[in-house]
Design a protein around this nucleic acid. Structure first.
Lengths: 336, 336
DNA sequence: CTGTTAGCGCGTTCAA
DNA sequence: TTGAACGCGCTAACAG
């Protein structure tokens, strides 16, 4: 295992080997249409590129061009789930088709200006940042540095371009379904801890929809432990309790599912359950948990499109029509 | 939403505002110990930095220094799970403490030389690459470019530094436990599709351990569907079938769990079950699924240490003592 | 002691 | 097809 060799091959190395100038190497490598290079020369250059394993240095390229083809995505502070995984996978592919490279920043904890500085150092063309990772001034810092910012937010943001993913729609979708099948008293689980904000958004969407239908709603706090789930199950099963529960997501749903089962409650006959995020676990429970799915492929498509239009508007000032992320859809299974 | 302002503030902008030279800015920003700058000047420079939101351009810095502080991690082709998520989180933090930045490359599909080229373009100091994403020649390309390569592999790799995560240990750990509690005929589930390689490694570790104890083993193919799980459950429950099953991971375990339950098999009395990866789902099943856990925090620590020593050996030729990733541990629950 | 000038590293582009 | 200049931050050599 030798240590890595000192220095990457440069365009000068390629030029030397192909016995042309660095300019010619650049023209061939970038396939510049205006410069007509004889086929023989082009071949010589490409052969040299292959032989040396030459890959142009993005740093140097960016420095010269003043702009990069990198899109930086800091991770949200909440844990990754299969949906986010799918979003990353498809977004990366979509951006690649536009000649952009998606990089995910490993740091998960920094927020605000210090985070913005860490992102700005890389001079990406655009940053796709979850709302929980930035503030107004950190966005300002990025934009002053010529970096486009696209926020992923639960609600509209007046001070920057944002893709709005209304988490309330998730709860609302669950509510519509549960109302449809006849429930008139519906509870929403609200997790504690870092997920609370998200949980509250979903619960509020449910509440509004339930009230609009003239039915009754309530919120039940719970955290991700069996004990807390047992307490929540007891609250659900109290006399006069709700006949249906939206469980925030499928993991909380699984916990509550088990706690209700332990109490001898039948699903969906005694209590109906609807989770969210369409995690694999939902299909493994018995009875299988209905879930509000997030449609990650569609979400990735919209993100990719938004970033592309952001980067193409170049100097224009119209806000991009970022709009709302793909609406969630019900995966009806056995618990509802 | 105005378009991003044209150009990031440079050290020249800071110098102008602070009325010093660019050199002075550099000395202050990098806290160079040999150059004594009067407190007043230093303050002026830092004030200008703050006012402009100046962040040094890593491209320019890298170009000058010839080396970057970036560590690039291409994602494995298998889907992310909570363990990998935890590894990324902790590795990022560990590297940050050494002044390194972890970037995760969004592209998940490219392999071999074209992947290596995409990574080489970024000129990271090191690449942390899963074995399924690279070949001997792609590693050679990276190393010729002065990029350190650390492979994450299931088995020792003679041609590069590698952290060996012996997946066989996962199966072996399951086998030891099941033998301990008295089983003499143990099956291993082997998934089909992209997970097959991993599954086979785990199954072989189990087989070797079981045979060494003079007991009997078998492999049962299965894919991630309820139908296939039902078929696997039938195979398990056939007359003379195994009394214990290692399920490859907890998701396959959950599927088999359900299928066995549907057949009326009691766990662990009729059949014992042990999964792997310690996914949340394991604790949500009833009876809760025992699982072989991967210890992601420890894994991240070892990865971080390996990368640091790789980058410090600078020019030396001794192989780093990368060694084996943290051994898996049994999380005993109710199914075994 | 404090700060500046000059030139480098690499790919791109315009004028020749 | 090429020479030359450029973009930005770093640092060695040097000046006030």
């Amino acid at each position: 295992m030798n240590s890595a060799a000192g220095r990457a091959p440069t365009s000068a190395d390629v030029a030397r080997l192909a016995r042309v100038s660095r300019s010619t190497v650049s023209l061939v490598v970038n396939d510049v249409p205006t410069a007509r290079i004889p086929e023989a020369t082009r071949e010589r250059v490409l052969a040299a590129v292959r032989e040396l394993g030459y890959a142009p240095d993005v740093s140097a390229r960016r420095l010269r061009a003043g702009t990069s083809r990198l899109v930086l995505m800091p991770l949200p502070q909440i844990p990754l789930n299969p949906s986010i995984d799918t979003v990353i996978e498809h977004l990366s592919e979509k951006l690649r088709q536009s000649g952009l490279t998606l990089l995910v920043h490993g740091d998960r904890t920094t927020t605000g200006t210090s985070a913005a500085r860490a992102w700005a150092e890389l001079r990406p063309a655009a940053v796709l940042v979850p709302a929980d990772r930035c503030t107004k001034s950190s966005v300002a810092l990025l934009r002053r540095a010529g970096i486009e910012v696209l926020m992923i937010s639960e609600r509209p943001v007046p001070w920057t371009d944002a893709l709005v993913f209304d988490q309330g729609r998730v709860g609302a979708e669950a509510a519509e379904h549960l109302l449809d099948v006849g429930h008139r008293h519906i509870a929403a689980i609200v997790p504690s801890g870092p997920l609370q904000g998200l949980g509250r958004d979903r619960a509020e969407g449910l509440r509004d929809t339930v009230h609009a239908a003239g039915a009754r709603s309530e919120e039940i706090p719970m955290d991700a432990t069996h004990d807390s789930a047992a307490a929540a199950a007891a609250a659900v099963r109290r006399p006069g309790g709700p006949t249906a529960v939206f469980t925030y997501n499928d993991e909380y749903g699984a916990l509550l599912h088990r706690a209700l089962d332990d109490m001898g409650a039948a699903m969906p006959d005694d209590v109906a359950l609807v989770g969210a995020d369409n995690l694999p676990i939902a299909t493994f429970l018995r009875p299988a948990l209905s879930s509000i799915a997030l449609n990650p492929v569609e979400i990735a498509d919209r993100m990719g499109a938004a970033i592309s239009s952001l980067l193409e508007r170049a100097g224009h000032t119209e806000p991009i029509e970022a709009g709302v992320l793909a609406p969630p859809v019900l995966m009806r299974r056995e618990t509802s």
